[in-house]
Deep mutational scan, measured.
Amino acid sequence: AEKTGIVNVSSSLNAREGASTSSKVIGSLSGNTKVTIVGEEGAFYKIEYKGSHGYVAKEYIKDIKDE
């Protein structure tokens, strides 16, 4: 099942092309942005936001229960 997560940073969080800190940054998400978690790979979540996919470090995403 898809989960919703909240970007848990004070400034912004980089979204990357792949599940690695050396992957190209494809965008950034500001704190408290809601994202859909579609998968996980190592220390990263694969997320969907406004129709695009990217990878973000798990430690900066807070899971919330689907309402």
Rank of each mutant, 00 (worst) to 15 (best):
G18I: 06
T21C: 15
I37Q: 00
T36D: 04
V7F: 02
I47H: 01
D66A: 11
I64C: 09
H53F: 15
S12R: 13
E41D: 10
S22L: 11
K3P: 02
E2C: 15
I47F: 02
I26S: 03
T33F: 06
L29M: 05
N14H: 14
I26M: 07
Y49H: 03
D63L: 15
G27L: 11
L29S: 00
K46E: 09
K24F: 04
H53V: 14
A57S: 10
G42F: 02
S22D: 14
S30K: 14
E17I: 08
V25L: 06
K34R: 13
S30I: 13
G18V: 06
T4C: 13
E41Q: 08
G18P: 02
T4Y: 13
T36R: 14
I37L: 02
G18S: 14
S20A: 06
I6K: 05
V25R: 04
Y60G: 08
T4N: 06
V9D: 05
E2F: 15
S52L: 14
A15W: 15
T33V: 09
T33N: 04
F44K: 01
I6E: 03
E67V: 13
E2T: 15
S30R: 14
A15P: 04
K46P: 04
G54F: 12
R16Q: 08
E48N: 09
G27M: 15
I64T: 07
G5R: 03
N8L: 09
G42E: 06
A43C: 13
S23V: 03
A19T: 07
A1M: 14
S52I: 14
E40W: 05
K62G: 10
D63N: 09
Y45W: 12
N32F: 11
L29P: 01
D63W: 10
I61W: 02
Y60F: 13
I64R: 03
G5P: 02
I37N: 00
F44Q: 01
S10E: 12
R16C: 08
G18R: 13
Y45G: 05
A15T: 09
H53S: 06
K62Q: 10
S52C: 13
Y45A: 05
A1G: 13
I61T: 00
N8H: 10
Y60I: 02
I6N: 04
K58N: 01
V38N: 01
Y55K: 00
G18T: 12
A15G: 03
L13G: 04
G54P: 01
G5L: 04
K3A: 05
N32G: 15
S12N: 09
Y55P: 00
I64N: 05
E41T: 07
S23W: 02
V35I: 08
G5E: 03
D66Y: 15
A19F: 04
N8S: 11
Y55I: 01
Y45C: 08
S52H: 09
I64E: 06
N8F: 09
E67N: 12
I61R: 01
E17V: 08
G27R: 03
S22T: 12
V7M: 04
K65D: 09
A19R: 05
T33G: 04
K58D: 01
E48W: 11
G27P: 01
S11C: 15
K34C: 13
K50G: 12
I64F: 08
E59N: 07
G42A: 04
I47A: 01
K34F: 09
L13M: 06
G42C: 07
V9I: 10
G42I: 00
T4P: 03
A43S: 10
G27T: 07
G39K: 02
D66L: 13
E59L: 07
G42Q: 02
G39C: 07
Y49P: 00
A43Q: 11
A57I: 09
N32P: 04
S12I: 12
K65W: 09
A15V: 15
V25C: 08
Y60P: 02
L29G: 00
Y49I: 08
K46A: 04
A57P: 15
S22Q: 11
D63P: 10
I61M: 03
L13Q: 03
R16T: 11
S11G: 15
T33D: 08
N32R: 08
N8V: 12
I6C: 13
Y60K: 08
D63M: 15
G54K: 02
A15S: 04
K3N: 04
F44E: 03
I61P: 01
A43T: 08
K46T: 03
S20D: 12
I37K: 00
I61K: 01
G18H: 14
K3H: 08
S10R: 12
V9S: 12
E59V: 09
E67W: 11
I47R: 00
G39R: 01
S10T: 12
L29R: 00
I6A: 03
E48D: 07
G39F: 03
E2A: 15
A57N: 10
K65V: 13
Y45K: 04
E67I: 14
G31K: 14
A15Y: 15
V38I: 14
S10C: 15
S30T: 11
N8E: 06
K46M: 10
Y49V: 05
T36N: 10
G54H: 05
V9E: 05
T33E: 10
E40P: 01
S30H: 11
L13N: 01
G18W: 10
G54S: 06
S10P: 11
I47S: 01
K24S: 08
V9H: 10
E48C: 14
G51P: 01
Y55G: 00
V56F: 00
N14S: 11
V7E: 01
T36L: 10
Y49S: 01
G31R: 14
V25T: 06
E17S: 09
V25G: 03
E67D: 11
S22P: 03
K58S: 03
T4Q: 09
R16A: 03
V38C: 11
H53L: 10
A57K: 11
K58A: 02
K58G: 02
